[in-house]
Design a binder for these strands. Structure first.
Lengths: 110, 110
DNA sequence: AATCATTATCGTAATATTGCAATATTTAAT
DNA sequence: ATTAAATATTGCAATATTACGATAATGATT
């Protein structure tokens, strides 16, 4: 097949997986890091920052936007993209939670 | 094409992307959560917990292991899988870091 | 209005992922 | 030694992802 069986898992599990998946590509990590680095949210130059063609970058931006990790707004003839804090916070909260749980487990066998 | 251009990004970016990608599937999130829930690391029953066939689960376990998120050890005729804290901690640290950075940015445009 | 600059979409090729049946492998138990 | 139980591997079909050239869409500039 090849299609993920999302309907068999909880909404929360699917939500986290979607966020994680969106960051499961180095180009998208690089985009996030670039957006964090620049103060000005002038964003068309993301294309210049990455070793990828413009349509490819546009596609990655779309995925990040769909996942709720960035926001995009049209500004004249260019588009201003910037971080959507909420997405990052969800991931941060989730991993802090399960990382703590893992740490508190004393009954590790391996 | 379809092959990710990993050589154009930094090692750190690739490392995080690899970890995130490994958790970019609800079944693998479910596996991690199950391993956190059970005290005993008796793990063959992960198959019973998931709505997936045994070879599929085995494949997901392999990916989590390759990514450094779980550890597996042969125990008699079964295999004991459990959380590898290091992987989770890396993710936790990374997201805490960038989430904080995002929060401290005052120049958000959108 | 014609042109330019910026970004998005379409179409397509190459590759990767997901999932499972069938089969192999390994160890325990008989 | 056979058999049973648990897990891994193989092979394959269906689908998804990645990447880009070509093209469209939109707004700015002349």
């Amino acid at each position: 097949m090849g299609a993920t069986k999302t309907d068999h898992f909880t909404d929360k599990q699917n939500a986290i997986a979607t966020l994680a998946k969106a960051l499961g590509h180095p180009a998208r990590i690089a985009i996030i890091e670039y957006l964090l680095k620049v103060d000005t949210c002038i964003c068309g130059d993301i294309v210049n920052e990455l070793p990828l063609a413009q349509p490819t970058v546009s596609q990655h931006l779309k995925e990040l936007k769909n996942a709720g990790l960035i926001k995009g707004e049209i500004e004249g003839n260019s588009v201003c993209y910037c971080i959507d804090e909420k997405g990052l916070k969800k991931l941060q909260a989730y991993f802090t939670n399960i990382s703590t749980k893992a740490e508190n487990k004393k009954t590790n066998c391996c």
